[in-house]
Design a protein around this nucleic acid. Sequence first.
DNA 1: GGCATATAGTTGTTTATGCAACTACTCAAA
DNA 2: TTTGAGTAGTTGCATAAACAACTATATGCC
Lengths: 146, 146
Amino acid sequence: MPNNQFKKGELYSFMTGKASTAIARRLQKNMKHGGIEITVEQWSVLYHLWKNDGLSQQELCNATFRDKPSITRLVDNLEKLKLVKRVASKNDRRINQVFLTEQGRKLEEETMMVANNTLNEALIGVPADRVDICKEVLQIVYDNLK
Amino acid sequence: MPNNQFKKGELYSFMTGKASTAIARRLQKNMKHGGIEITVEQWSVLYHLWKNDGLSQQELCNATFRDKPSITRLVDNLEKLKLVKRVASKNDRRINQVFLTEQGRKLEEETMMVANNTLNEALIGVPADRVDICKEVLQIVYDNLK
DNA sequence: GGCATATAGTTGTTTATGCAACTACTCAAA
DNA sequence: TTTGAGTAGTTGCATAAACAACTATATGCC
């Protein structure tokens, strides 16, 4: 028994993620404006390495919710930009660990500041308790479907 | 003065739209499983034509929050699939109106049913009033950034 | 040890996106 | 009536995504 109805197109934006598209575009624009020459997708990989350097590509797949080919090519491009380096694991030769370079580490502070500012632009006029509810709903949706 | 802080990565999912990615993937999977051979992006264009046939490409840009090249190519592909047809406007020869074909119209009922079911899968365990709050927050975010 | 199965990662193909540069058409003002 | 600004749409290029097919390595069972 459905607990919600998709009526009158009011949930179109919800389903198509117009808000998150808008956030990604603004983040991209703000990074470019700040002289940070990476894509938002590359940012999402670096983000997890800043928290936890040396993740394997598979762990990056799980963390970023991207498939293996996507991570292969994102890491390819980040390597070309000299921001990360693949290191074959000694224990398990199937695994590449991905490590930040000095250059990659240096990006963290500035880039996270831009991300933080972008989020604040996005949330102007939204009470914090409503943001929390929204986050919870999106987390449940993600858990339902992932 | 920032009204929210981007702390401890808790808003990573919010910013990167993991929930809407999950919805889009599930919708794609459900359509394929139901024998509907279109992409979710093509669905988003057809959706607006079902509500309002004959929109111009520019109007489709506004409705779907995509840029002009994206709509050009989505309409290209929908035309190849014989689901829509471009018709040059008589009043203003710059404008293409996009009309559904009989085949395009026939997809509506089944496809909207699949979309509705997908949404219900996504929202299992979420009280309706929380969905409403989430929608409102996302609408404000979109309006802040669009 | 050897084989089946699973896991990590890569490659190929099609579709989609963002941005910039371009063509074609419209409209209004000199 | 011409010209110049604005609008609608297309094309080119780089990046990214989904899916399937592939290689290489690891592991567990006989």
